[in-house]
Every structure is written in structure tokens, then in C-alpha cells.
Design a protein around this nucleic acid. Structure first.
Lengths: 107, 107
DNA sequence: AACTATTGTATCATTAAGTGATATATCGTA
DNA sequence: TACGATATATCACTTAATGATACAATAGTT
């Protein structure tokens, strides 16, 4: 991935993918970070630089929306176009994994 | 993924993944490029810059080995450690996809 | 022989993605 | 009031990927 242009090619990076999945329900940045950490049993940790950079990009692209004001927190939620892209990307990942399963037999 | 550090974290980028899968059988650079293009029905195209950059990196890390001389071509093959890493990465991708399947139900 | 397309490898300069470090402020609680 | 956790943000940097370009051997063809 810087790979490429990711979103311009309608593909999600792993980090974007994790974050979008979290935002199927409303959640604020720091909560996302914690959620990913817990769900992955400490294996995946997204630092603040990555987190807020990616949130900004997703918002700019209209894949997530900022919900109306709370003061300290910024609560986001996935948008319809975000859902559509996530769906598409999950399918892509499933296909890759299926191909992977066939490869496993050769190993 | 310019992403992160990929190999330092024992993760394969998509491009590395495609290339390593090809190299389960001996193949030279240009052949890999064609193979990926054909297998993906034209969807995935790896240009020369990416191709040779990644091959060099994989070789440096010992994940692939250069087979003895042909003149024009450089024929590579996956190494044992390359196989191990590929196996591990396929499992990671399968897990991600499984999680994705569960998410799909919410969409 | 001359021309052309394909095969084949390689690198430079740039763009894109992600992150470590750091900064700042608020909140709960001891 | 001191401290750790919560919460957001950005700068400078590294890493990854790629577009453009270059070069040469080979194959086919006119």
C-alpha cells in the first residue's frame, strides 16, 4: 500500500479498514484506538498520529461523518458511501483470503 | 500501506504477497509481472519500478533466492523463510476476512 | 538488412501512507 | 493539587510504491 493511492483506487489500507469497521457504530477517536487495541488483544495499536490523520482523510472523502457537537470529543460515524466502500473492500479481502487458502495447500 | 514497516513487523504488503505467491515456482521478474496481470484478469498491474524494487528487498531479506545464472533473466524462487512468512500472512489475511464476513451482516 | 514489438532489467525523482515524538488541554480521583 | 487517563492535534521523518525513463537483447516481419 504507499503503496498506491488506496482510496483513489477504492481500496482500504488495513488501518482505514479497522477504523471504518469501528465506526459502524458512533465512536470518537480515542475510543476507536482503544477498541482496536482490545479487539486485537493488544496486537494492533494505532498511534495518535495515524489515527487523527486517517480520520481526517476519511472525513474529507465523505466516508465518515462528524456527529454534532460534544465538546471534548469528536464523535464520528460511517456514512453510506463509507459502508459501500467497506463492503466492497471486505469482498476483496475475502477473495484474497480464498486464493490464499488454495496456496496454503502447496506449503 | 506506506504504511508501516511491513517486513519488520512480519507483514506482507499486497504487492509482496502477490510476488511471493508467484515464486512458489521459479520465475523471473518479467514473468511475475505477466503472471499477476493474467491471473488477476488485468486488474492488478505491477510496474517495473515496483517489481524490481520489491524483488531486491525480498532477496535482501532472504525471503527469495536468486537461482544460478541464466544470462538475460534473473530467476528467483521463494525460500523456506519466505514460505514460512507467506503462510503466516495468509493466515492473517484469512482471519481479517473472517472478521469481515461477520461485519458484512451488519451492512 | 532494417524496422518494430516484445522481452527483460534497472534506477531516479516523486508521491502517498504511516508513525514517533511531542504538545496541549481536560477529567477523575486520591 | 498532583497524577494518570482521556482526548485531540501536528511536525518531521521513514518506508512503500510508482511514473517516467533508460537501455539492451531477442523475435518476428517486411
Amino acid at each position: 500500500m504507499p503503496r498506491g493511492k488506496s482510496l483513489d483506487e477504492n481500496q482500504l489500507t488495513d488501518s482505514m479498514y479497522y477504523i471504518l469497521v469501528c465506526l459502524l457504530e458512533p465512536m470518537h477517536g480515542y475510543g476507536i484506538k482503544q477498541r482496536i487495541y482490545e479487539e486485537s488483544e493488544g496486537k494492533i495499536e494505532i498511534g495518535p498520529a495515524s489515527l487523527y490523520t486517517i480520520l481526517k482523510k476519511l472525513q474529507t472523502r465523505g466516508l465518515i461523518t462528524l456527529l454534532p457537537d460534544e465538546e471534548r470529543r469528536k464523535t464520528y460515524q460511517i456514512s453510506e458511501s463509507g459502508k459501500a466502500l467497506l463492503k466492497q473492500d471486505i469482498k476483496r479481502r475475502i477473495q484474497l483470503a480464498e486464493a490464499g487458502k488454495r496456496v496454503l495447500e502447496k506449503l
